[in-house]
Design a protein around this nucleic acid. Structure first.
Lengths: 144, 144
DNA sequence: GTGGCTTCTTCCCGACGGGAAGTAGCTCTC
DNA sequence: GAGAGCTACTTCCCGTCGGGAAGAAGCCAC
């Protein structure tokens, strides 16, 4: 089974994926990870500290922890996004039958590799916020 | 005016932006750039070749070129996304009064700095497509 | 057995995005 | 000079996606 998957993976890797093509699977994958909740979840589970954005390695987080950290996410979207990330092999979902039940999420190696990119996206947003705000002021001033 | 903006920018840079907070401006910026059309437009204008994903420096592209390259984008979304990127100072929009009119778009330095990240996102999607597909097969097989 | 805790799931509805058609300005044809 | 044609939008309609709130499941404390 594992060998079959490895072979399948190699075959897939040999294909010429082009994310610009609407029909290409990599385009659909790109569409899915270019999503604000995906980026924020990966940032959170990667262990990035809120202020520095530095990564201290993957963290195991409970559903309620994520819900609290990602201000504004609805329960529906959080659950839905976590499930799709689990399906894609980016994170693992572990249910511990305590009372009440505990569900914890943790990045896989694959998820961690993507986390490095989303972390940089987040750092970019925080670092260039001032520039962007200044440009918006200019644009709006000219437009008015 | 320019000095005022520079000062404003410094002030903004000193604040502790935290993209996890829903009210933080950097969170809204992150929400905007975590968008499939934004990522694809930045990839296209950065000059990434469809197959290798390597960047050859910023390209100037016409509206129709972008429309053709980004398969599946609606005219409405393309225009809307380009406008918001222009407003944020990530690209410039140039109208040349030829007949018919020519409108060209080009990344600014700020846009180029973000392009480097989106290009890696795209490369990641294309590189790990096989792994993700394999994980999906596993997940769906277990679920059934 | 009622309330409470966590992790979802379901329902309703408003907002966002796709598709197609309409617009503007100019040029070329007939 | 009326109509077609070209690019780059803009507008309208409508389906789908996402937010908000309430319900469900499973178990324990009181």
């Amino acid at each position: 089974m594992t060998t079959m998957r490895a072979v399948q993976q190699q075959v897939h890797a040999k294909e010429d994926y082009d994310a610009f093509l609407a029909v290409c699977p990599s385009r659909q994958l790109l569409d899915r990870i270019s999503n604000k909740w995906v980026v924020l979840i990966l940032c959170a589970l990667g262990g990035a500290s809120p202020q520095t954005g530095a990564s201290e390695g993957p963290r195991t987080m409970r559903y309620s922890e994520l819900s609290r950290l990602l201000a504004g996410v609805s329960q529906k979207m959080l659950t839905q996004t976590l499930r799709s990330l689990e399906r894609d092999g980016l994170l693992t979902r572990t249910v511990t039958p305590t009372v009440p039940v505990t569900v914890s999420y943790r990045l896989t190696d694959l998820g961690l590799s993507l986390h490095h990119l989303t972390r940089e996206i987040r750092n970019w947003a925080q670092a260039h916020m001032g520039e962007v705000l200044a440009h918006r002021d200019d644009y709006d001033a000219v437009a008015s």
